[in-house]
Design a protein around this nucleic acid. Structure first.
Lengths: 345, 345
DNA sequence: CGAATCACCGCATACGATTGCATAAACAAG
DNA sequence: CTTGTTTATGCAATCGTATGCGGTGATTCG
């Protein structure tokens, strides 16, 4: 009775194909999906159907399949900031793997906020997908339970933020790598006052890296000066401001460690603008090894992570679950970080 | 009869809410959408329904609405390379506008290939969305006709590549800006041998920029030396290789212009590695003004584009069409480029 | 030669939400 | 008491696809 004013005109449906081929719609469905082992289709009709499909340029409407409870052929990916180059190879890798499986990828930014993360979860509840890839900073186990219970999607996660029995995890040994990096800075390079550009404690990864930083200083027998701890929000400009703060100190540090490269690059910019030489007067070190770390001068010493590998791992783990090849307890995969010694230290 | 094995478990549907509130499912629909002006709902039942919604934590299944031909609450965006920082503010702006409208964004890479672009169109045909944003390099009018005819989606496009009556377009005056940039390089800076790092003629934007380049040289009365024309593929590494090629020339240019910043940065890397001073011995100039242009040393002289503004414009134009506020012929919006004079020239 | 088997295919229903139409209740007017 | 009108709600069809089950014609077997 109701004729929906086609905002989306689906000119050619399965019924059209059926009519053109002189068969029923269900036959067309069976020819195309083919997965119905018990059902046999005559070779002649199969050909007629395939010809009609080609002639009409038919494509299946995936909204229908999604509604029917089939695969949605879609992945959702949540990252913190699409402007951060660290995520690009990851997104890239996920998209590549997805396309191999003829999947599409929906992407959302959270801007590192909890509100953004919850919005993402609600979005996925409203439009269920087959798989979800997350880089969570705030979400708790309850949020994951809800996500999984309501959508039934396979879930893969980056980072040690969460440990959930049903989600696969890939993470770097960042705390250990950071510990070693600071130790190297102290012992090999002789720095005794090292400033930190960290993030607020709302980010569990910030807490972990800060602890590793403190532990390294402690182990080296150095004093912990609260004035040397500054905060940023992962962006280049926040690194710039944090470095200014450190430079303004009565007794500035001789080295600055930023918990990501963007902030390190911003810090270097600030330090050089102030007429302070890097690394002679002040060394700078970052984390991630984004490509831009080698574009700046001096080239940035940093701790490399391997986002492409991480993304590929998450995506393949996801598809193993989607295709039912694996459904055990969440796997954990560690990608080792590596110190990249360059010119800024 | 058929019980689809719920890959996606939608625990709570509208029917559940209806049952909990003791009304029919259609009443729930009317309470929630509310858009049905002719239909009145008793205040008491409205409350009962809303309470049931809250109690059950109901969210609408958007796959169903999409199938029914309603809005899909989804945008699709096609860009060439998610690794190119030029696109990030654009993606960002689109996502921000979309989220204001409670829309999600599906993103696809084409890697600058026609195959990638066609794949995207097919993907959108199979899963219609309300709006499409494209950065096309190869697609022709026929592809756009097909896209629009098959999906009925609103379309917005970046660049002058296509001019279609039904699509809104935003573009920079890149040819003019490039002409002026080269003229500036020649007249103000005195360069008489300028190398070009361009792209193949398959990219219409490459052709246009190359023409502008040639025109500027002609107008300056300079000879056109084919050896000074090299090709890249928009990536940093291709810029590196192209610059090596120019350096190897018997008579190398005194300035190099790359049609985007990534290639310019790659070129600068190559030039400096070869022990040639930038800009004293060889000047470098790019196009786009990505943030990284000010990270490198010397800072890159370039022609600025404003991708965030471009993205915002495309997105708002799209929503004007989606919401029926506009349905006239495709609008065109020019975003002026601007020369950013820095240290590399 | 009648019945059982088999290969092939169509009918009908369901997924969840929207919406035109029918309908029930309540009330007013004649 | 009948008829008309208003108000609030339910029924049922629909979007495009998947699938259990029943049906039909042909072949085979006892």
């Amino acid at each position: 009775m109701s004729k929906p004013e086609g905002l989306h005109k689906q000119a050619v449906t399965m019924r059209d194909v059926a009519q053109a081929a002189g068969v029923s719609q269900s036959t067309v469905s069976r020819v195309l999906s083919g997965t119905d082992g018990t059902m046999l289709i005559g070779e002649e009709t199969r050909q007629r159907v395939l010809e009609a499909v080609a002639a009409l340029g038919y494509f299946p409407n995936r909204h229908a399949g999604s509604l029917r409870g089939q695969k949605t052929m879609m992945l959702a990916m949540m990252i913190a900031d699409i402007g951060n180059p660290f995520y690009h190879p990851m997104v890239r890798a996920v998209q590549d793997v997805a396309h191999e499986h003829r999947y599409d990828v929906m992407i959302a930014n959270t801007d590192h906020t909890y509100a953004g993360e919850r919005l993402f979860v609600e979005s996925v509840i409203q439009r269920p997908v087959d798989g979800v890839i997350l880089v969570p900073y705030h979400m708790g186990k309850a949020d994951f339970d809800r996500l999984i219970a309501r959508t039934g999607a396979a879930v893969a996660v980056l980072g040690q933020h969460i440990d959930h029995p049903q989600v696969d995890t890939v993470y770097g040994n960042d705390d250990q790598a950071l510990f070693e990096a600071i130790s190297w800075l102290v012992h090999e390079r002789g720095h005794r006052r090292v400033g930190l550009i960290g993030v607020t404690n709302e980010h569990s990864v910030g807490v972990r890296r800060r602890s590793a930083f403190v532990a390294a200083l402690r182990q080296a027998g150095l004093a912990i000066d609260p004035a040397l701890f500054t905060l940023g929000d992962w962006t280049e400009s926040s690194g710039y401001r944090a470095a200014q703060q450190l430079l303004a100190l009565p007794e500035p540090p001789t080295a600055v460690f930023a918990v990501n490269d963007l902030m390190a690059i911003g810090a270097m910019e600030a330090i050089q603008s102030a007429g302070v030489q890097v690394p002679q007067q002040m060394a700078v070190m970052g984390f991630d090894d984004i490509p831009q770390a080698t574009w700046v001068r001096p080239r940035l010493t940093t701790v490399a992570q391997y986002p492409a590998e991480m993304g590929r791992w998450m995506a393949t783990a996801l598809f193993e679950r989607i295709q039912g090849e694996f459904d055990g307890v969440g796997r954990r995969f560690e990608v080792k970080c590596r110190l990249c010694q360059r010119e800024s230290t």
